[in-house]
């Protein structure tokens, strides 16, 4: 039916050709995903630290909830965000549906639980070691969270990467809230879905290979950065 070789040559052709449309799609993918992961980190890191260090009612229930939300199906998130942002929905006046901002919102919701849950795990482990010391120094909870987050910063790169992988790979949410509009909200994954539905399987797979390459490069860069920085900081 289809040779893998054809897919690779399609991918190669796309890269060599480097046409404006492809660059636009890749750029939007990166822009949406990186923004979503950034926002998710800004929410997920403190939230994870709070769940690790904080002592408040329902904490355990919240931990279970956040862990469970890691498995949120993208389509469900997409539908939820669609219902909020639809002109018939409560936030319709913002006119955000079918814009990259809507895609960022959906991916942020998708990624935040992953980053928060992994952060909680990392911070909780580190706090076993730090807790007595920091309490003996008279550190408040907030300051304790800050100290732990800062000291765990290299481990948290991995949490961010897990979120990045999820955001870069998902199609269900961005398809619904972005609409896969050419030149406006078309990203790598929705383009792949579109080419597949057009029966252009080699092209779809070719785009998939580029997406994977992109993901490998991003991961390698961040992990490399983490290694080097970590060695400098605590050998």
């Amino acid at each position: 039916m289809l040779e893998i070789g054809t897919a690779f040559s399609a991918a190669f052709g796309l890269i060599i050709g480097l046409d404006a449309d492809l660059i636009e799609i890749i750029a939007l993918s990166l822009q949406v995903t990186l923004t979503a992961v950034l926002v998710a980190c800004l929410i997920g890191f403190p939230l994870g630290a709070l769940l690790a260090v904080g002592r408040f009612p329902m904490r355990n229930a919240l931990v279970v909830l956040v862990n469970a939300l890691m498995g949120l199906p993208p389509v469900v998130v997409g539908l939820g965000v669609y219902l909020m942002l639809s002109r018939a929905g409560p936030l319709g006046v913002l006119n955000l549906l079918y814009t990259p901002t809507a895609m960022v919102i959906a991916q942020t919701i998708l990624v935040t639980p992953i980053i928060a849950a992994l952060t909680r795990q990392v911070i909780e482990d580190m706090n076993i070691e730090y807790d007595e010391l920091l309490r003996s120094m008279g550190t408040g909870r907030l300051s304790q969270m800050q100290t732990l987050l800062w000291d765990a910063r290299y481990a948290l790169v991995t949490a961010a990467l897990a979120g990045l992988g999820r955001a870069l790979a998902e199609v269900g949410a961005v398809m619904i809230v972005g609409g896969n509009i050419n030149h406006v909200t078309r990203v790598m994954t929705t383009a792949i879905a579109l080419e597949t539905s057009k029966g252009e399987l080699a092209l779809a797979l070719g785009l998939g290979i580029i997406l994977m390459t992109l993901s490998i490069v991003l991961n390698a860069t961040l992990m490399g950065f983490r290694r080097t920085a970590e060695r400098m900081a605590y050998a």
Binding site: Q31, L34, T35, L42, N95, T99, P100, T101
Partner: peptide
């Protein structure tokens, strides 16, 4: 600053 930079380039309203 870091946050707003990527958002700023998004076509929020055409």
């Amino acid at each position: 600053m870091v946050l707003t930079a990527p958002l700023a380039t998004l076509p929020l309203s055409a």
